[in-house]
Design a protein around this nucleic acid. Structure first.
Length: 288
DNA sequence: CTTGGGTCCTGTGCGC
DNA sequence: TGCGCACAGGACCCAA
């Protein structure tokens, strides 16, 4: 469920806590998340300084001072909880209580210089971590073949048109495919297609150049709006500090089956259909 | 090659 | 009130 905006929100939340800081000690509480963690995982993190925190698609990239990058995927339920150190700032009690309420699925703990801790908690364990040379990050299997960042210039109508050309798969599935464009998940695909008034059951190849232009613009807008709102806190997503976001109130179609279409001059009703075993929400009246 | 369906995992929420 | 089960979904895996 964390999609690009949520991951970006976590990244921004982690920066003041981790960037430039030393990992005094790393603790690994189980051998695997979704996949086995790399050899000597905790040892390779211990004593490293986090130089920079980046993002690629839905992955967090923590560049370390030894030329390796800690790659993190939050999966469905993964989150970082920050337990503040000695000098707690305002609101730290709340953050701490959120974090310590769980503990059960605290799979990786990073003890940070100054007494703080960054806890990776992931109940459903769809998350992943790996270590990889920073200079060769694009060769990691997670990123090889991954599409452009939707907020970058490389993502434009021309790109979409080429990616979609001749494809018989549904538009919904095509946009979820990280090889076409990075970072979109079920929620924002639904929201973007609503914004562009395009029906999710259309084949990807059926989009005109004009529609691709509109769609790229709307995708950008939807993602940027969500990032600005601090990411979605829907269900089990938590921001990096344990606080809940509030963007879920802004969803126009996602999880709104049966609700009147929010478009002013549309009398339609939001429907839920299933596409490739995923819920799609859309307005069959105005999304053509 | 493309495409679609199955699978993993556990907490939540619903129906009975 | 309690139990059981469907559901949530990102990304890999495999079959056709």
């Amino acid at each position: 469920m964390p999609e690009l905006p949520e991951v970006e929100t976590v990244r921004r939340g982690l920066i003041p806590e981790l960037e430039g800081r030393l990992i005094v000690k790393a603790i690994q509480n189980r051998p695997d998340l979704r996949w086995p963690l790399p050899d000597r995982f905790a040892e390779r993190l211990t004593g490293r300084r986090v130089e920079r925190i980046g993002r690629r698609g839905k992955y967090l990239l923590l560049d370390l001072d030894n030329g390796e990058t800690l790659i993190v995927h939050l999966g469905m339920s993964g989150r970082f909880l920050i337990h503040s150190g000695a000098q707690t700032k305002k609101g730290a009690n709340f953050h701490q209580s959120v974090g310590e309420a769980s503990g059960k699925h605290d799979h990786v703990v990073l003890e940070i210089e100054g007494g703080g801790r960054a806890v990776f908690n992931d109940a459903r364990r769809f998350g992943a971590m790996d270590l990889w040379p920073t200079d060769d990050i694009e060769t990691h299997k997670f990123f090889a073949g991954m599409g452009p960042e939707p907020l970058s210039n490389a993502f434009n109508a021309q790109h979409l048109l080429e990616e979609f050309e001749g494809r018989k798969t549904s538009l919904k599935a095509a946009l979820l495919d990280q090889r076409r464009v990075a970072g979109l998940g079920n929620i924002y695909v639904c929201e973007a297609l609503f914004g562009a008034k395009i029906c999710p059951t259309r084949t990807a190849g059926s989009l005109s150049a004009k529609e691709c232009t509109l769609l790229t613009r709307v995708i950008r807008e939807v993602l940027q709006t969500a990032i600005d709102a601090g990411g979605s806190s829907l269900r089990d997503f938590h921001g990096a500090s344990g606080e809940l976001g509030y963007f879920q109130h802004a969803f126009k179609v996602y999880d709104r089956e049966g609700v009147a279409c929010p478009r002013r001059r549309c009398s339609g009703e939001i429907e839920r259909i299933v596409q490739s075993a995923r819920s799609t929400y859309y307005c069959p009246t105005c999304q053509i």
